[in-house]
Amino acid sequence: MSVTMAQALNTALHDAMTADDRVICYGEDVGMLGGVFRITDRLQERFGPQRCFDSPLAESGIVGTAIGMAMYGFRPVVEMQFDGFTYPAFDQIVSHLAKMRNRSRGTVTLPVVVRIPYGGGIGAVEHHSESPESYFAHTAGLHVVTPATPGDAYGMLRRALTGADPVIFFEPKRRYWASEELDLPHESAPFGQAEVRRQGSLATLISYGPTVATCLDAAHAAAEDGWDLEVVDLRSLVPLDTERVVESVRRTGRAIVVHEAQVFSGFGAELAAQITEEAFYHLEAPVLRVGGFDIPYPPAQLEHYHLPGTDRILDAVERSLAY
């Protein structure tokens, strides 16, 4: 059947709460309303207000209390309503969620999942289109993952809710309503395994989350010109599947990293460095980075100038080929 990413996430939460009564879901407007994106739709009706409930409007409070609940033995899955409202919770995530297992020498594990709808492309008002993944990828102690397809959205959220490490779960909100043919439940590969979404031989496009679809569109368009591009979907930034990325780049000899976040000091810089370290003698051209500009996310009417589209990606492929 045809399943959207939003439906897949909702079903994943439903199935996880059915499978494990320690899974508790809360955040702003997630109860009666079912979340502003309806990802928690009907969970309160199905599981009651003890297991899916609205919290006061305070993101640090949401993550901080989730840490306490996880210490007790629950598995909280909490929602940050939008990417730009994750920042008030930054201290709890970085200072405690990421570190408590380490500083307790392994006695306290915190299986907390922080869901964050992220990225632009939906014409949202300021502070609703951020791509803050690098802040969290730069913090030891967190798993940082982001699905690109409905199937992975389901499978990866189920994995997040059975794993033992804290997970920052980035949901590409402009892909919420994209659908695919899918039978649920769907099993996904473990975190730390990238997926080749399209095989090719000329160059490798490496991406994650919302821009995987853009890369596939670019590869499709390029195929009409006889360019055979490979598309790798990282799925998880931490842990990172360097091996799969390097294997692909060694074959194609060219790597273009694509993400929505600004290029400067973005996750693409880490990828470029690792590819250079691991595949230097296989590279025909420098690793190129394609992303948003190094500016604050623009107003909605101008966001299409900022977001990396197929043209910007194919221009980079062309620059790579010109070496």
Partner: peptide, 18 residues
Amino acid sequence: PIATQALHAVGFAMAAKL
């Protein structure tokens, strides 16, 4: 980090209540 543990105490109490 000042004050941060107050939320852990509350979350722990939320869990106890549940």
